[in-house]
């Protein structure tokens, strides 16, 4: 899952800016195909920290089952594109508290996670 880095896209600028902040690198030096582990040298804890940073910036929660798919910079950007863009059906929001407070205006179908959040413990 890789993609180009369109400079005109505000979302992608935020993604690369967030990654650049964590990595202490100029976002322009990051490439979609950069592997978090092999090219950027992140260990598993650092990868978790980076994803945490992304979660905080974009106010989402990335479930464990999606976490393993984030192998490259492009993976992260594409994932966020899908989570925060128009195509939400593949990666439904899982942040129960966010869902409770902020109805997802982008999603047209009710996800399992959203259903669970209503039925789960309050």
């Amino acid at each position: 899952m890789t993609m180009s880095q369109p400079s005109s896209n505000g979302l992608h600028q935020r993604v690369y800016s967030t990654l650049g902040d964590y990595l202490r690198r100029n976002p322009e030096t990051l490439h979609p195909e950069d592997s978090l582990r092999d090219d950027l040298g992140l260990d598993s804890l650092q990868t978790i920290e980076l994803v945490y940073q992304v979660e905080s910036t974009f106010d989402i929660q990335i479930p464990d089952e999606d976490f393993g798919r984030l192998q490259t910079i492009g993976d992260v950007a594409a994932y966020l594109d899908e989570r925060t863009g128009s195509n939400h059906t593949h990666f439904p929001p899982t942040d129960a508290s966010t869902n409770a407070k902020k109805p997802n205006t982008h999603s047209t179908t009710k996800s399992k996670a959203q259903t669970r959040s209503k039925n789960g413990p309050q």
Partner: peptide
């Protein structure tokens, strides 16, 4: 925040 998932991953270490 009321968001347990916002606890920093480096908190425990």
């Amino acid at each position: 925040s009321q968001k347990p998932h916002r606890v920093h991953p480096n908190f425990i270490p």
